[in-house]
Design a protein around this nucleic acid. Sequence first.
DNA 1: CATTTGTTGATTGGATCCAATTTTTACTCT
DNA 2: AGAGTAAAAATTGGATCCAATCAACAAATG
Lengths: 228, 228
Amino acid sequence: MEHGVDFAALAAGSGERPRTASEFVQRVLRAAILDGRIPPGTPLRQEALAEAFDMSRMPVREALRQLEAQALLEFTPHKGAVVAEISIQDQADTYLIRRALEPVAFARSIPHLTREDLDRAEDLVDDMDREPDHGRLGELNRRFHMSLYARAGSPKLLRLIERQLVEHDRYLRFHLARLGRDRMSQEDHRAMIAAAADGDISAATCVLHRHIDVAATESDRSFQYEKQ
Amino acid sequence: MEHGVDFAALAAGSGERPRTASEFVQRVLRAAILDGRIPPGTPLRQEALAEAFDMSRMPVREALRQLEAQALLEFTPHKGAVVAEISIQDQADTYLIRRALEPVAFARSIPHLTREDLDRAEDLVDDMDREPDHGRLGELNRRFHMSLYARAGSPKLLRLIERQLVEHDRYLRFHLARLGRDRMSQEDHRAMIAAAADGDISAATCVLHRHIDVAATESDRSFQYEKQ
DNA sequence: CATTTGTTGATTGGATCCAATTTTTACTCT
DNA sequence: AGAGTAAAAATTGGATCCAATCAACAAATG
């Protein structure tokens, strides 16, 4: 229990197992890193993880390599992996990237959005109002945004945006801890749906721009608050 | 030699070896995939690669996993890895992403560019004029662009852009095969340096926008030409 | 006393072997 | 002959073992 993280508990309670052990480890660790259960800087010892997951070191190694390629870990040869640090700079960069990419996807998607797409987006906003678990808000928020961009016809762009939203989750919990769910700008979300329903691209992207900018400045405060 | 790729030759002639065998394999395969020596769709058999690189299957496996996380391979459990396909859609998306991200980085970088940065950028443009090997033009072009964005103060944004430029390399050779180096818009490159030297952000980003748009439409033609 | 040099323990990198899964081949039955 | 099925081959996933490397500490030397 060197670093206060109960890896065995992580390994135990976690949905259905994928086909391979390696992928299982990868998903569990990924989720735990994103929501902060494994804090930045934690060294991940292969032997300890293998024992906690009750398997050999090999699938653990493969999982760690994949997480490294996703920039969630940092490897040093013969020294092993540590959870990548988070920083206010990184958070700011995430918003900078989202601000550049998401309006493009939104603008390209709006002309092809169907009634079903908009209904699904609205359902997700409602779900967010009801969801009691802060940890799951990130996923709902992500699915909401992605549902509005889904018709952009640019799979690679969408994958990239989704990745930014996932990395954003690493910081979202600070935001929620300080302000709670109420300030998650549900009005912005509904305004985006309305503008998209009207086919008003400039209005929609304008709301989105503001939405991301507000989130950026608020999250900046939340991060500084968290770190004193 | 099932798929006409001489893996042993790849393994043999390739610069200095990194610390670990896994990283060596990763770099060699990555370079070969990017410049098309291993064509899209090629299945990568662990046993064959291990023999070609004269090592066991294990470092090969780790390398393949990392390349998968970089979206250069696609894995199917118990079936193995194949080189990711390229498509005109993917190429278009790459330009869409570059168009959204690079001007942001350039605008943020310009106020902090030093004389040395600009000199280095100019050297790289000159190098591109002289470089006889088409395969290396991609790297020089990448380094040129990155040198202009280097002072943006957004490491994560820069990593993302560099990744796009690397993936761009997979398509660049079609462009060069059709038009040759002459049309690589060296004038744009020099115009970008000049505008940056003047501190004229809007002029610089304008040139960059046009530069990317022209490259996008030309590359689109090159791709269709290549595939008939 | 500071610095350097072995030495030991811990940890990762790599090799080899075994198990699980998929694909192919061969065979049977209609 | 053709479809379906069972056995065999090929290939990947996982376990175990050994080697290489790094960190910490002790001892020797200036």
